[in-house]
Design a protein around this nucleic acid. Sequence first.
DNA 1: TGCCAGAACGTGTATATACACGTTCTGGAG
DNA 2: CTCCAGAACGTGTATATACACGTTCTGGCA
Lengths: 154, 154
Amino acid sequence: MREKTEFLSTEKCREIGQSCVCFNLRRAARSITRFYDKALQPIGIRSTQLSVLMTIKLKKDGIVLSKLAKATMTERTTLTRNLAVLQKNGLITIEAGEDRREKFIKLTQPGEETLLKAVPIWEAAQKSVAEQLDDGRIGSLLKELSAVTSISMS
Amino acid sequence: MREKTEFLSTEKCREIGQSCVCFNLRRAARSITRFYDKALQPIGIRSTQLSVLMTIKLKKDGIVLSKLAKATMTERTTLTRNLAVLQKNGLITIEAGEDRREKFIKLTQPGEETLLKAVPIWEAAQKSVAEQLDDGRIGSLLKELSAVTSISMS
DNA sequence: TGCCAGAACGTGTATATACACGTTCTGGAG
DNA sequence: CTCCAGAACGTGTATATACACGTTCTGGCA
């Protein structure tokens, strides 16, 4: 067992920084989030909230918390906190189900109206992104993101 | 000005959810972060912290906070908080520069050692991701992420 | 019927993120 | 030299994220 002179070259660091899927994905997410959030600012919601509202809207008569968590692929406890904000702002209601363990999430009227106002804003933002990427690249990007999302923890 | 019966179809919602770059990027980022974080758990750092340490390592004699923020594309005030954790855990030092407005960030010895231990872990995680995506797709993914990251706020 | 495994959920704690606003400091214009 | 515009940074506040742990409740088994 002789002493090894371990050494981490700056080259190696640079290579890791440039190729790390996690870092590059997180950085892109921060950037795109700032972009969408700024666009949504006039109607007082953020991109995360929009995606939650959209997912709730998919179910006519409300959706159970844990189902919503599964649909958005958010940690359940994260979603609990996110929903609390939406409830505070009057965009959703949270009520106990018949099975009293369950929480039913529903859109309120203001929630519906916010969604309506959000759609053209979202479309403009999405269009802007599509234009700033080469056309067609959004399709392959989404496909690759989907693959990343379903990476298993084995 | 007649009353419009505004209506948001579930079809539209589904389409938005499936094509929204922001939502899909954030979701993928959450997923990949969980993956890398779990891998890094044995050495007590997270993926975000690893990328910060790596970026610091790129500069021999420390780096000024705002430069580091630019390099990692993190909000400066976000980085301030992230660095506080690394400092608390003894991985970096933060000291005032000659220009007393500036803060110099440097790796400590434990910080260096943590980086060394992180490299093989990172390589294994990255390799695992590469295998679960089709080969070559990482390259195009990184290219598209780079394009997304540089989207302008115009 | 009584009981318990498991489902569904909340809370405590910690990190990550960003905007608005305030503070300190430097360098140069006058 | 004085003063101030701008640089560099911190703090308050709010949202987003996730793990560990605890609580409540349901349905089925003995």
